[in-house]
Computed example of a mutant assay.
Amino acid sequence: MSKIENSKIINYINEVCSLVKNKKVHAEIRAELLCHINDTIEDYLEIGIPEDKAIDKALIQMGNAEIIGHDLNKAHKSNSDWLLLIITTGLIFFGFLTTAFIQSNTSNDAYYINYFSKLLVFLGMSIVLSLCILKVDYRKLKKYSLTFYICSIVLLLITLAFSMPVYGMKRYLIIGAFSLDTLAVTPILLIISLAGIFDNYNWNNKKSLFEGLTLSFIPVILFIYLQSLSTIIIYLIAVFTIMHLSGFKLKYLIIISASLVSIFLLCIFKTAYRIERFFIFLNPAKDIDGQGWIYNQLNTLRNSAELLGNNSNINISI
């Protein structure tokens, strides 16, 4: 190639890289773009197109450098999202402030004596874990997607088989002095694993469709047995979003969603007891010592609250 022709390629690659703020990936991007361009040029040369025209056609086929640069910048974004960081920090500060007031007003409650200190420990562990995750190239985790999925299912099965119910729910695995909230961990792992499994997934193939739906709904069955409706709702919203982005037709998702909602409403309204529980918030005074108890307690909390809390918020009669 002549110097002029080489400069066209170099200028194209430089323009793309100039739009990518993460300089650590420039070398990788340059090598990848150059490889694609050279392969395309060789294809054109093989069919008899002159070299200079082959270069021009190859650059046109690569696409607009500005668009590619912006897309690669999003994919390789390294700068922190300061707005998200500020909002997260504010929420954490508010949570700790609330916890401090609760602990200061519950000196006789053994559960809250060291609660604030425990939160500080967990916060420190979370920061360290977050910093470690930032160093991981998440794209390399894709090949372990099925492994994450299987481990999550096994963890849910172990929870279902061996955990002790807490307030009617099985969600904690006791390991020595520690407890693991599996219903807080497994949905995240499942969503991450399914995002990897459904990447470039062929939903048009009947076998793949059946396998994909099976993988998606096995956790739902386990969450039903673990009696966690909130987990089911959050999980399904995330999974349906992933399925739609991976090519699953929207009309089928709407049909599936409508069917699930219908089943949910049927389960609620088939007995008078559940109907009463569902609508008791409209008139909690109707059953103060029964279904409306929690709403009346919340009303007491709200009416007794002040700007910096109130000790009466904690000492509610049971």
Results as ranks from 00 to 15, higher is better:
residue 6 N to M: 05
residue 10 I to K: 08
residue 11 N to C: 02
residue 12 Y to L: 07
residue 17 C to W: 00
residue 19 L to P: 00
residue 28 E to G: 10
residue 30 R to H: 06
residue 31 A to F: 03
residue 36 H to T: 05
residue 39 D to K: 08
residue 48 G to C: 06
residue 49 I to R: 10
residue 54 A to L: 02
residue 62 M to A: 14
residue 67 I to Y: 15
residue 68 I to V: 07
residue 68 I to P: 02
residue 69 G to M: 02
residue 74 K to I: 07
residue 83 L to E: 13
residue 86 I to A: 11
residue 86 I to M: 10
residue 98 T to L: 14
residue 111 Y to L: 12
residue 112 Y to I: 10
residue 113 I to L: 15
residue 114 N to W: 09
residue 116 F to K: 07
residue 119 L to Y: 04
residue 126 S to Q: 08
residue 128 V to M: 07
residue 131 L to T: 02
residue 131 L to V: 04
residue 132 C to L: 15
residue 132 C to T: 09
residue 138 Y to F: 10
residue 139 R to K: 06
residue 141 L to N: 00
residue 147 T to H: 14
residue 147 T to M: 14
residue 149 Y to V: 07
residue 152 S to P: 04
residue 155 L to Q: 05
residue 157 L to V: 14
residue 162 F to T: 13
residue 163 S to M: 07
residue 166 V to I: 14
residue 169 M to K: 13
residue 170 K to G: 00
residue 172 Y to T: 04
residue 179 S to A: 08
residue 186 T to I: 00
residue 196 G to R: 09
residue 197 I to L: 12
residue 203 W to I: 00
residue 206 K to T: 11
residue 207 K to G: 04
residue 212 G to W: 01
residue 214 T to N: 05
residue 215 L to E: 09
residue 218 I to S: 08
residue 224 I to A: 08
residue 225 Y to C: 11
residue 226 L to C: 12
residue 229 L to C: 06
residue 230 S to R: 11
residue 231 T to M: 02
residue 234 I to H: 03
residue 235 Y to T: 06
residue 237 I to N: 14
residue 242 I to A: 03
residue 246 S to R: 01
residue 254 I to R: 03
residue 263 I to A: 04
residue 266 L to H: 06
residue 267 C to G: 05
residue 269 F to G: 05
residue 269 F to T: 09
residue 270 K to L: 08
residue 282 L to N: 09
residue 284 P to H: 13
residue 284 P to E: 10
residue 290 G to V: 13
residue 290 G to L: 11
residue 292 G to A: 09
residue 293 W to D: 14
residue 293 W to I: 12
residue 295 Y to E: 12
residue 296 N to P: 04
residue 297 Q to W: 09
residue 301 L to W: 13
residue 302 R to Q: 13
residue 306 E to H: 14
residue 310 N to F: 08
residue 313 N to S: 12
residue 314 I to R: 12
residue 318 I to H: 10
